[in-house]
Simulated scan of single mutants.
Amino acid sequence: MQPFKRILLTGVNGQVGHALKARLTTIGELVALDRSQLDLANADAIRSAVQAIKPDLIINPAAYTAVDIAESQPLQAQAVNAIAPGIFAEEAAKINALLIHYSTDYVFDGLKNSPYVEDDLTQPVSVYGKSKLAGEDAIRAVGVPHLILRTSWVYGSYGKNFLRTILRLASEREGLKIVADQIGAPTSADAIADATVTILRDIKSGQSGTYHLTNAGETSLYGFAQGIVDTYEGMQAVKGWPDLKTYVSNILPITTSEYPTPAARPANSRLNCSKLKHDFNIELADWREALLDVMHSANFRPQQ
């Protein structure tokens, strides 16, 4: 394993950052910062933090993720998702640090009929997607050793996400209508964090590249919602969880056009993860298995 003495982790209160914090202490001395401690919209603050901490590994899961709000706040999304990663890369280059940055399926337009590979043409269709792609490009332009890990449909036991939203709505309503024509791979924050640590244990000095990192399998948002409710029902008696008002049979499919949003979403969010398996021998579990693991975890509370 390449030795890491000090690690700077951003976005520690986010889903992936929270999952990473619990695991990175096995790799090196960890300095984990939240937004109040490091505002990624402040370029000078980023430079000062890196210069003061002097990490040999920078991990940046922090992002502006309000996809719809970004349509009316492009400058805010650009500052955090595009400019900040480039600054991290510049500062990393000065101190010979490795940079790991997380990106998204939203860098693609979703029109391809098969899973996207890393070097497919990127054509984001939203402000969020464009800002995330600009962040990737800024890192590559610096030429610092880096890994850009693209993932999709991230959820977990912590924070705001599709899993928690569906369970909240299912506890309040007797039926749900969920988009069925957007396809992807739900990916747990725990799976992303575990894979990141595995990569760090195997990465070679100077190794760089972009990798797709998602749980295996595929489903629609409608199928994901069904899986969430079905898994809940299967565990309900054992866990002593309260009844839901919505059951699987009460979840109805709708089209994207029936649920308009300010930001366009890729219809196809599937990412081909063969490169990750080839280079690091990492192959994540099927999304259904990962969902079960998250809901089985000791810190999962369905009604938070």
Rank of each mutant, 00 (worst) to 15 (best):
N215L: 10
D293H: 09
I53T: 13
G28K: 05
T256M: 14
F88L: 14
S208W: 04
H146R: 01
T122M: 08
A170G: 10
K21E: 13
Y155C: 04
I183G: 00
E90A: 04
Q207Y: 13
A285C: 11
D181N: 15
Y155G: 07
L291I: 10
F280S: 07
G86E: 07
G234P: 02
A19V: 06
N81W: 06
T256W: 02
V80L: 14
G14Y: 08
A191H: 06
P115T: 09
L252A: 09
I69E: 14
Q207V: 05
R23I: 01
E90C: 08
N81Y: 10
N42A: 10
Y222Q: 01
P145E: 03
N113K: 13
V67Y: 07
L99E: 05
A89M: 10
T196M: 03
D137Y: 01
I95H: 04
Q182P: 01
K160S: 14
F108T: 07
P242I: 12
I199G: 03
K132C: 08
K160W: 11
V125H: 02
M1I: 03
G28N: 05
D120E: 11
T65P: 00
G175D: 12
A195Y: 03
D293W: 00
T256H: 01
M235N: 00
L75K: 13
Y211L: 13
P186L: 07
Q207G: 03
Q51E: 15
K160G: 09
P74N: 05
P55D: 06
T246A: 12
V67T: 12
L200R: 02
P266Q: 08
Q2H: 10
S188N: 06
V80T: 14
D243N: 13
L98P: 05
R23C: 01
H146W: 07
T210S: 14
E289V: 15
I53S: 03
T151P: 08
P3E: 13
G11E: 12
E118C: 11
I46V: 13
L24N: 01
F300L: 12
L276V: 08
T151R: 02
P302I: 11
D120R: 01
A225T: 04
Y64S: 09
T25C: 06
I203N: 00
T165G: 00
A134N: 11
S274D: 15
S205Y: 04
A62M: 08
K177T: 13
K160H: 13
S171I: 11
N42F: 02
E289S: 14
A191M: 09
L169H: 10
T214N: 04
K204T: 12
D181M: 11
E172Q: 15
I192W: 03
K132S: 09
L24V: 02
N60Q: 13
S152C: 12
G175N: 12
N272I: 05
